[in-house]
Simulated scan of single mutants.
Amino acid sequence: MNLELTVEDPRWHGLEALASRAIQAVLDRCGLDSDLCEVSVLGCDDTRIAELNSEFREKSAPTNVLSWPAEDLAADTPGANPASPAPDFMGEIVLGDIAISYDTCLREASQAGKAMDDHVTHLIIHGVLHLLGYDHIRDPDATLMEAVEVDILGKLGIDDPYNE
């Protein structure tokens, strides 16, 4: 897997290892050849992610994770699996970009009594699933996405974040 990591916030120690593990787990679950896949991850703070959230989603507040898929793979039918990405003319599968905020992740993990690494792993998995066409706007899609997240997290030894 080609992970392009940019760390803007120096508090992001170990982000490369967490991101690599999470992304690999998603690719394995989805049956994708990780040698062909490329994902970009930005480790930032609340100020930067709020700027991105405002620019791309017209929401002027920080959030935990944002995703920009390289292509729209979403299923037309609610609750159906998204389409699988295909390699481009170079044989690569460029999935897209993810930004994750240290401040929001730390705050959410602390409030939930979770380990920061587990929460960050969950959010990267969540972001990669968005790159692969999963979503949670429609209830059937949310049910599918959460089930996939829980399955992947379980294989990594991380508790179900939706069963609090």
Rank of each mutant, 00 (worst) to 15 (best):
His136Tyr: 14
Ser101Ala: 15
His126Asn: 06
Ser54Gln: 14
Thr63Gln: 12
Lys155Gly: 15
Gly14Met: 07
Cys30Gln: 14
Arg11Ala: 13
Asp88Arg: 09
Leu36Met: 13
Glu92Arg: 13
Pro161Leu: 09
Asn163Met: 13
Leu153Trp: 02
Ile152Lys: 01
Ala19Lys: 00
Ala50Tyr: 04
Met1Gln: 03
Ala147Arg: 15
Ala83Met: 10
Val94Ser: 11
Leu36Ile: 07
Val65Arg: 05
Met145Glu: 12
Ala70Lys: 05
Thr6Ile: 11
Asp9Met: 10
Leu66His: 06
Pro62Ala: 14
Ala86Leu: 14
Leu52Gly: 13
Ala112Asp: 12
Pro69Glu: 03
Glu16Phe: 03
Gly14Ala: 09
Ala22Gly: 06
Leu106Ile: 05
Ala109Thr: 10
Ser101Ile: 07
Ala142Ile: 07
Val128Ser: 00
Asp45Thr: 07
Ala99Tyr: 01
Asp46Gly: 15
Ala83Asn: 09
Asn53Glu: 04
Val7His: 00
Glu92Trp: 03
Gly154Tyr: 12
Gly127Ser: 07
Tyr102Ile: 10
Leu129His: 00
Ala99Trp: 01
Leu36Pro: 00
Asp103Ile: 01
Pro140Val: 11
Asp97His: 13
Ser34Tyr: 04
Ser60Asn: 14
Asp118Met: 08
Glu38Arg: 11
Thr143Tyr: 10
Val150Gly: 01
Ile93Asp: 00
Arg138Pro: 04
Glu92Gln: 11
Asp97Ser: 14
Gln24Cys: 06
Asn53Val: 09
Lys155Ser: 14
Asp118Trp: 06
Glu38Ala: 12
